[in-house]
Design a protein around this nucleic acid. Structure first.
Lengths: 329, 329
DNA sequence: TTGTATGCGTTATCAA
DNA sequence: TTGATAACGCATACAA
């Protein structure tokens, strides 16, 4: 590996001038610029980013901390972040936290030792203090950590209401909800959206909302119980698509026809929902846009470019497929 | 951020001694060791990895280059790599190449500038020369670049044969194949496995193998055509699970009952296959093990630990679910 | 057992 | 317009 010194020697100039043409700042004579450029080419020289980082105290790296890339909601998000990182010449570090604060903290400090420039985090456990004392730019994604911290998310509450409304409009008479964990703010918001739509219905009762942990199997179990105890439920608003697939499987196992006997609507709009039979109707969020917006926000933040909105909330939109029986009341 | 110099001052020793206790090498008096440790604690000192990297010429980072994390085959692989990277204190960089050699090359050189210690690559375009002149440890994953380069993969040829055999044993009379791209070695091997099982059957004809590009929609289209042109096909061995889902969808659209009128078997064993209706029968590969083995191999390679086998090939195993009609001939 | 000095490869300051 | 040189924060060779 050639160093800047080798280039300098080859071009018959000092390292300072080489550095100047490299970063194109400061005056440099056209002739010597050419000489240096040629030397660089001949030696196949590439600047050493580590040395650069040491001097600049920044690494051109950003980290994405999320629960688990194996959860089908996250790959598209990660892809979006990676894409904008790539465009802006940042390198992208992926961290799976399994929702454990300990792991999050480990990644945070380990990467800080590498002069990482910033983080995007999907977390329900990180506190404002932790982020603050980290002293590195952070934007929250999908889940909000604090209103005072830049974030990108979607209109969970409103989306949930729309979803329930859609079920009602299509004739459902008794609508249940499979919720995500209460400590996840978006799960909480979706549940509230549901509750505020149904709480005053005469058919409503507490047993209609059960926890599915945002995972497939727990949701399947929860739905099975729910449907056994409340056979008159004819519509379910499920907190995310992954759980909705579990609900679909539960109905199938119980011999309940979807959508004839039971309408199901999910939330997220992940690709998985297109592959089930029947295909999943859902409240879709613009996952890729959410991810890339978070990355943009972070990079602007890092580079000191002021952002108009530092708390961005995307709208959601219903994706009509096959798990809701169409027809008015 | 405190530096080693701050710690030295605080403890009343030189930076060399601090370095010694940090890396626990060289002699150091127990008393001063304690003093230093305390100073470190008081100052909340963390060593600067960038400075370390510059000196050591290595970064404790490994890169994983794969086509697209959005393809449901890859998240589990990536997770496995990240897990062992994490255990061994390496940080994990994810790169999406979209199967473009140009992007691969960009990542390779960009990360080399950061003193990356090694790569795991899922690639069909990278050449031995490129890897060689990179002069950084590389292990090939899922797809073999050269027999002389460490690699981890599965028994594609044998698995394909088993899959076809399974279809035959269960009474299929005319078996087609939806293949992956021929330039992907594992797709080629799977196709060969199929061909070597059926080439001499009296029902075999060339039109029975069609390209599905290892993607869902192309496979769906290909299967639709295939099934229209060859209505007597009663079994399909599909080159991967993602395409198999497309085939399932095609059959559904054509009103062909699976598995009653058509048996389908995929390859890979990704989670997606469990969620379809009917659930996909497939040749499962130990995806997580494949990924973690590759990571182990790479890290041993990096750290100079000799590996017994540098070309590892895992076995595959049939996962019987619901898309193959059971029953002998 | 400990300290001093040097280098890892850059960038930026200051002179020239 | 260019060149010396001092950082950046650490680890090691060599002295002491």
């Amino acid at each position: 590996m050639a160093t800047i010194r080798d280039v300098a020697k080859q071009a018959g100039v000092s390292v300072a001038t080489v550095s100047r043409v490299l970063n194109s700042n400061g005056y440099v004579n056209e002739d010597t610029r050419v000489k240096v450029t040629e030397a660089i080419k001949e030696l196949n020289y590439l600047p050493n980013d580590v040395a650069r980082s040491l001097f600049k105290r920044r690494s051109k790296m950003i980290g994405l901390i999320l629960p688990d890339i194996t959860n089908p909601f996250f790959p598209e998000l990660a892809r979006a972040v990676e894409d904008v990182a790539n465009e802006t010449e940042y390198t992208f570090v992926l961290c799976n936290s399994d929702n454990q604060m300990e792991k999050e903290q480990q990644y945070l400090t380990a990467l800080k030792q590498k002069y990482i420039d910033g983080f995007i985090v999907v977390s329900s456990t990180l506190t404002t203090e932790q982020v603050h004392e980290l002293n590195v730019p952070v934007v929250a994604l999908d889940r909000i950590i604090s209103p005072h911290m830049p974030s990108v998310s979607v209109q969970n509450y409103e989306g949930a209401q729309e979803a329930v409304q859609y079920l009602i409009e299509n004739g459902c008479q008794k609508i249940a909800h499979i919720s995500g964990p209460d400590y996840v703010d978006n799960a909480h918001a979706r549940k509230q959206g549901y509750l505020d739509m149904v709480r005053d219905k005469d058919w409503y009762e507490d047993g209609l909302v059960v926890d599915g942990k945002y995972e497939l199997d727990p949701a399947k179990k929860a739905a099975t119980q729910l449907l056994e105890q409340h056979p008159d439920v004819d519509g379910i608003f499920v907190g995310n698509d992954l759980m909705a697939v579990g609900v679909l499987k539960a109905a199938e196992a119980l011999g309940i026809k979807v959508p004839e006997d039971l309408s199901i609507i999910g939330f997220d709009g992940i690709a998985l929902g297109e592959t089930t039979t029947p295909a999943l109707t859902t409240m879709g969020q613009p996952i890729y846009d959410v991810g890339s917006k978070a990355a943009e926000l972070l990079i602007n933040y890092i580079e000191g470019i002021p952002s108009v909105h530092s708390n961005h909330s995307f709208g959601v939109q219903i994706i009509e497929r096959e798990t809701v029986k169409k027809g008015g009341v």
